[in-house]
Structures are given as structure tokens and as C-alpha cells.
Nucleic acid binder design. Structure first.
Lengths: 189, 189
DNA sequence: TTAATTTGGTGACAAATGTCACTTATGGCT
DNA sequence: AGCCATAAGTGACATTTGTCACCAAATTAA
């Protein structure tokens, strides 16, 4: 069961089925519908979600009703409103499944205790954090150094699968531009 | 010596002078001049720098010669070209000290081994990573959700000390806008 | 299947920001 | 102290992007 999760939790070293099963006890399966909201803005994000199938979206809603996508979490990765989950304080962002999804959720205390079951987790978690941080640095760089056109071209090159499966409006607010602007970029590029 | 570093390395638990001294052996003091470049784009960033005095700046240089500041590292924090250091691959960014600074540098292998000397480091490092990641998420949010005017107002509120000590052009490319635009914002806000 | 809703595209115009050229002010260095 | 290089400010104009209104296409839900 859940080979993606097992791979993710193992890190460098392989873990036994017993160890993995013990860890699995603290994960709960949640099946979501399209556009289902898992965390509302203002809630404390109590769970970390592993995307076994589907895709999560973390987004902000400003006072004018405009949405901005902070992150997209593809299959095989953990995601949640990270600042809220880690600090256990109210979330600015919403967490939503963009399509019908299969999530494995784990609460804060269990997440912090994962290391008790899983010998490789301490290091694997640190590596994942480092990689997520690096990804976010690259996102910052693209936002401060490139125009919308370049950002779209880059996303198309690196994440063409995301572009294919997600509606334009989500891609647009992930890039930090309006739907209309993206619509026009598509013609030019 | 170096109370700021000791505090940072300790994390939650206090460490003894002996433990700290052992750790100190792998740090080397470097005194830099204003605008001194520590890592060139294309180099592998071999050191993590602890800012004991002064301020570091991590910036990108595009083909037109325009600079963009990815991060500013204040006193009492670690900084380097993080993706390059962690992955030990060539850096896109430059690392520079904005004023005369006092840095404590540690090479990659020693950094990875810090945990051998310091009982609290594993956890402290993870906490710092989480916090740095959260900070970068907030930066992404401000870049995708707010206008230049709002970003400047927010920076002035949260980091007025940085604004005071750094030249306008650095603040401008940290915000991802041109010097001229920032100049005009200052009058309006 | 159909009706309703959502999404995507486009024109016209507005607003924000960038670019260039130039002047003034500042601050580092000898 | 004084010179020089760098930084900051500003006007005019170009470019990019956003906003609004509207229609077409696609997708969802009944």
C-alpha cells in the first residue's frame, strides 16, 4: 500500500514493512472532491497532507476576491499551509484539492513524532525541507528577475504537465498575473 | 567570543563552552570590505557564512547588467548562495558584503558534521530551515499578491532598519522594481 | 441531454512600472 | 578637506500589465 508514501518516508535508507506499517497508522486516508477546501483562511492548519493522487493548491484570497496561488503540490509530495502548520497559528491561505484527490493526512503531533518510528526520517525531512526551500528561492528569483512572458515560458519548459492539467486562471495567479494577460501571452509565445 | 553564534548554534538547549569551542574550530573569521564579493556567479558556494557584524547580500546579475537582490542576511544569521551550497553545484547568484563585515565561515563538510559536536544542532538547524522557508513563502506571497507600493510600505513597517542602512538601489531590486519607481513611491507614501 | 456555470479569449482603455537622459546630492577615499 | 565616483531624484515617454465588458467554448451538474 502507498508505495509513493513509502518512498518519500524512507529517504536514503530503506525501511522495513513493519516500520512503514507503524508509520501508516498515524496517516488517515481522505478522498476529496474537485475544489474541496481542506483548510480555510483563519483556521489553524492541523494536518500535513501527502498527495497520493491528484493535486493540492495553496492559495490566498485578497479583499477584492482575487485569488493568488502560493503553491501547487503534485502527486508524491507533502503539502499544507506550511507557516500555519509549522507554527500552529491561523493560516492566511486556503488549502484546496484542484481535482478529486486521494490524500494521506497526518496531524501535527504525529508529524513531529514520525522520527520515532522511522530511522531515516530525520534526515529525509531535512533534505525535503532543503529542497522545498531551494524551490521557493527559485520561485522568488523568477518573480524578481523576469517578466510575465519569461515566467510563463519557463513554467512551460519545466512544468508543462502542470500547465496541461490545470485551468489557465490557476496558472495565471501562480505566475502573479491576470488571466487576460496570460491569455495574450499564450498567443505570443 | 561570538555570543551571537553561540546563541544560534545552541538552539533550545544550552551548550557548554567546551562544546562551543570545539565547534568554533571549524569556523574561520573573515573580515570583508564594503562591496567585497565572496562568491561569484558560476562558482560553487563552498562556505556558509555567519554574519557576526554587518550584512550580506545575495544577488543575481542578468545579461543586461541589472542586479536583483535575492536575499539580505542581517547580523546573527547564516547566509550563502543556498542552492549552490546545499547541492554543491555552480551558483547563479553572487554573495557580497554590503558594508565592512565580520563573517564566520564554515565549509560544506564541516557544516554537515556540526551535529557531531553539538547536541542541539540537528534540531536547531531544522528549525532554522523551517523559519527560512516560511520567510521565503511570505516573500513569494508579497510578490504575487501586492503592488510595488504595498510591498514597499510593508517592508518599511517590518524592516525599517534595513531600509535605513541600505542604499535605495538595493532596496529597489530586493522589491523587484526599478530605482526610479522606488524613488517615486517614497514621495507618495 | 440540456441548462447552468465556469472558463477562455479579445478589444478598448486605464494604471502601473520601466527606460532613458539628465541633474543634484551624497559619501567614500586619497 | 576636497575630488571623484556612486547614488538618488525627476521629467518625458514607452511598454507592460491590469481592468472592464462582452462573447464563445467547454465543462459540470441536474
Amino acid at each position: 500500500m502507498y508505495p509513493l508514501l513509502k518512498k518519500y518516508l524512507s529517504g536514503d535508507i530503506s525501511i522495513t514493512d513493519e516500520q512503514f506499517n507503524a508509520a501508516c497508522n498515524v496517516f488517515h486516508l481522505k478522498t476529496t472532491k474537485r475544489n474541496e477546501v481542506l483548510v480555510e483562511s483563519g483556521d489553524i492548519s492541523r494536518y500535513m497532507y501527502f498527495v497520493n493522487k491528484g493535486c493540492l493548491r495553496i492559495f490566498l484570497l485578497n479583499t477584492d476576491g482575487k485569488e493568488s496561488t502560493r503553491f501547487l503540490v503534485p502527486e508524491g509530495r507533502f503539502g499544507t499551509s506550511f507557516p500555519s502548520f509549522i507554527l500552529q497559528e491561523p493560516s492566511l491561505a486556503y488549502v484546496q484539492s484542484v481535482g478529486p484527490s486521494e490524500l494521506l493526512m497526518i496531524n501535527y503531533d504525529d508529524f513531529r513524532r514520525l522520527t520515532d518510528f522511522l530511522p531515516g526520517w530525520e534526515k529525509a525531512y531535512r533534505n525535503n525541507l532543503e529542497q522545498d526551500y531551494i524551490d521557493s528561492i527559485k520561485r522568488i528569483e523568477s518573480l524578481i528577475t523576469t517578466s510575465a512572458t519569461e515566467r510563463y515560458a519557463l513554467l512551460m519548459k519545466d512544468n508543462s504537465d502542470l500547465i496541461k492539467m490545470l485551468p489557465t486562471k490557476i496558472i495565471a495567479d501562480y505566475l502573479g498575473i491576470s488571466r487576460e494577460t496570460l491569455s495574450r501571452l499564450k498567443k505570443r509565445v
